[in-house]
Design a protein around this nucleic acid. Sequence first.
RNA 1: UGGGGAAUAGUGUAACGGCAGCACGAGUGACUCUGGAUCACUUAGUCUAGGUUCAAAUCCUAGUUCCCCAGCCA
Length: 566
Amino acid sequence: MASEESAGRLNFIEQIIAEHEASGRFGGRVQTRFPPEPNGYLHIGHAKSICLNFGLAAKYGGKCNLRFDDTNPTKEEDEYVRAIEEDVRWLGFDWGEAALFASDYFGQLYEWALKLIQDGKAFVCDLSFDEMREHRGTLTEPGRESPYRDRSVEENLDLFARMKAGEFPDGSRTLRAKIDMAAANLNLRDPVMYRILHATHHRTGDAWCIYPMYDFTHGQSDSIEGITHSICTLEFENHRPLYDWYLDALEIYHPQQIEFARLNLTYTVMSKRRLLQLVAEGLVSGWDDPRMPTICGLRRRGYTPAAIRNFCDLIGVAKFNSTIDVVQLENSVREDLNRHAPRVMGVLRPLRVVIENYPEGESEELEAVNNPEDESAGTRPVPFSRVLYIEETDFMEDAPKKFFRLAPGREVRLRYAYFVTCTDVVKDADGRITEIRCTYDPATRGGNAPDGRKVKGTIHWVSAEHAVQAEVRLYDHLFAVPDPNEVAEGQDWTDHLNPQSIEVLSGAMVEPSLASAEPGARFQLERTGYFCVDSVDSRPDRLVLNRTVSLKDTWAKVQKQQLQKK
RNA sequence: UGGGGAAUAGUGUAACGGCAGCACGAGUGACUCUGGAUCACUUAGUCUAGGUUCAAAUCCUAGUUCCCCAGCCA
């Protein structure tokens, strides 16, 4: 399936698939699955796995199942199932008819447990939680066999049936595989197959009070579904021998488990536990807080599915435990939005400008390009009048030579409009600048001078009387340090939260075309960044914009360099 | 101190005994009605020490560092 030229670019999983194709192990078939546990929201790390699994299926002409690994009723909820489905779909993937659930296999799993008991490979153990831990041994010392290990098949069958019937309280007994208490791999020291849990399951309700463990479920689920390549993260590498053991003992179809390194991002925490804590403690506004690395957070932030897919593609797949620089993610949205987002003008921190020689009470419409990267996007009219707003940072009273924007006596271009020259600066009693006075050159209408003279700077603007006020939310990294997981003695990871991760600007002014923007609409505020209309808080009469990511800012870089020189 | 994994420019990722390449970053320049975008150039790497070989990132030996495992979580 892989083309000749990309043959050298295969990642290690594709290489394994190629070997299987050569050996004929799976008859040329490739089938994968994405197996989330419905106990939390999906995040960008899951996106890596989703893109990998669905991507492989698409590349090799196979299919990828969405299967919920719902074997623990105490943690799993329907809300998460719906959210996960929505997120996977939004990312652009399709799992066919319906999502699958490990809980659909509870009946079959029970039958298989019976078979292992009958084969003398499983037993009911009465050890308490603490006793079992004591028997397990340590990393360096072997464990001791359970005193219940040699029960007869009949007794095991009877006890297991009564466990299922609900005769015993939670934690009183388990069904365990009989493997090897001296195994160096702790997972092989007679692992628990079933535990007693009198809990209501989100799908099977109260039909069961015994639930299979992950290890006794996952491989068999893969087997039932005819999965060929069961791709999971590195921490399951130690579980592979057990995955294989169950499949072999059961003598059923045997998929190949392959482990890869999960995604880590700088300035981000990715563990479900920590993300849950951020939400539960109100450290963020919710799972979909635009600063969260969750799929719904990124969506609300303005990220596109294509940007996320492209990012996942770019970072590659390997077994090395790496941390990707978050700028890589940011770069992926910029790249996508640059090509597709319509341009619009808006000032975040308005500074009033009066064009002294422009007639009072008059206005006109200028033509602005919607997207210089896409001619088919066309143009739109933008109103111009005597009083405008420009960006506060686009004016400097005492400007260095490298500052190409407005300053007393300097001429700049107002984008798509006219050349203007600053003639005066108006200040209040405290010496704060309240207004800039300018003159404009009527001959430069549209932005070009007939005499051919050039200006170094072009700045954006909005007409004061036509402008729409908006609340703009500027986001920065949720954490102030590259690795929030690294905490010093006596510190907590939440101490690394970035107090400047959100800045709300309530008085932004944007061009009137934005008045009708739909929730979720994405666009570029020229020279500033990419923004989207907040899907939760924005109202027709109260526009709320989220900054997805800023534009690259060469001027900021120049300033930084000059600061460093000093 | 047992077992299982992993180490290639700043960050990621290729090269499968035969020219260490690519992306992002960083730097320089060109261009530009976004200090955006684009284009060109530059920078910078095989964990260490031995060995095998005409030839080693790749094979061998010894070491170093990092990650995972002692849930009736997944």
